[in-house]
Amino acid sequence: MSAKKSPEELKGIFEKYAAKEGDPNQLSKEELKLLLQTEFPSLLKGPSTLDELFEELDKNGDGEVSFEEFQVLVKKISQ
């Protein structure tokens, strides 16, 4: 996936994966893993990378990643 996506496209991608289980407005760690493996495969170099990335993105510590938290990752990789 190209990092150059419109905000609407990014929101659609986020919602597609977030709706798989639990809260449709939040990504669980498994949903984030699936999204990254599919859309940004070069970001995941191993299991520790996912854990570190999830911890970094989950700013409020609720165990899930909101769209706002996800946007931090998108901004970081599009620079």
Rank of each mutant, 00 (worst) to 15 (best):
E69N: 02
T49W: 06
F70Q: 00
K5R: 03
E68I: 02
L32Y: 02
F40W: 12
L44I: 13
D23F: 06
V65H: 05
N25F: 13
Q26I: 11
T38Q: 12
S78A: 15
K5G: 10
A3F: 15
L57N: 08
E55I: 09
D62W: 03
K4A: 01
K45Q: 14
E30H: 09
N60F: 03
E8V: 07
K16R: 05
F67E: 07
D62K: 11
I77R: 02
N25T: 11
E31G: 12
L32E: 00
K4G: 02
E55R: 11
V65K: 03
V72K: 13
A3E: 05
K59S: 12
M1T: 01
Q26K: 07
S78Y: 00
F14H: 00
T38R: 05
S28A: 11
E31P: 10
F70S: 01
L32T: 07
S42V: 07
S2Y: 15
Q26H: 06
P7F: 06
L32W: 02
F40M: 14
F54Y: 14
S2K: 15
G61P: 12
E52G: 13
A19T: 15
F70H: 00
S66W: 01
L32Q: 00
N60C: 05
E68T: 10
E55A: 08
E55C: 10
L10N: 01
K11F: 13
Q71M: 09
E52D: 07
L35D: 00
K4L: 14
L43C: 10
V72T: 14
D58I: 13
P41K: 12
A19R: 06
E69M: 13
K45D: 15
E68P: 12
M1S: 01
F40Y: 10
L53G: 06
L73E: 02
F14I: 01
T38N: 07
K29I: 14
Q37K: 11
E31F: 04
D23T: 12
L32V: 06
Y17Q: 01
K33F: 10
S6H: 04
V74P: 02
P7R: 06
E52S: 11
L32F: 08
A3H: 07
E68K: 12
Q71L: 13
K20Y: 04
K4D: 15
S48H: 09
T38M: 08
T38Y: 06
E31K: 11
E39M: 03
G46R: 11
P7D: 04
K20P: 09
Y17K: 01
E56Y: 07
E21P: 01
L44R: 09
L50A: 08
T38I: 11
S48P: 12
P7G: 04
E64S: 11
K59P: 14
K59E: 11
V72F: 09
G61T: 12
S6V: 02
S78F: 02
A19W: 04
M1L: 01
L50S: 09
S42T: 15
N60V: 13
G61W: 09
E56C: 15
P7M: 14
F40T: 04
K33G: 13
L43M: 12
S42W: 05
L50K: 11
S42Y: 08
K59M: 15
L27T: 01
E21Q: 09
K11P: 01
F40P: 00
K76S: 04
E68D: 11
E68C: 06
V72G: 13
G22D: 03
V72A: 09
E68W: 06
Q26D: 03
L34T: 13
E39A: 01
E68H: 11
K11T: 02
Q71D: 08
E68G: 07
V74G: 09
L53A: 14
S48W: 08
G63N: 05
L27Q: 00
E21C: 12
S28Y: 01
E56W: 06
L34V: 09
A18E: 00
E30N: 14
D23V: 06
E68Q: 05
G63I: 04
D23W: 02
P41W: 04
S48G: 08
F40S: 03
S2D: 15
Q37W: 05
E15P: 00
P41M: 05
E52H: 14
L44N: 14
K16P: 01
G63A: 10
G12Y: 08
P24K: 14
K11N: 09
E9K: 07
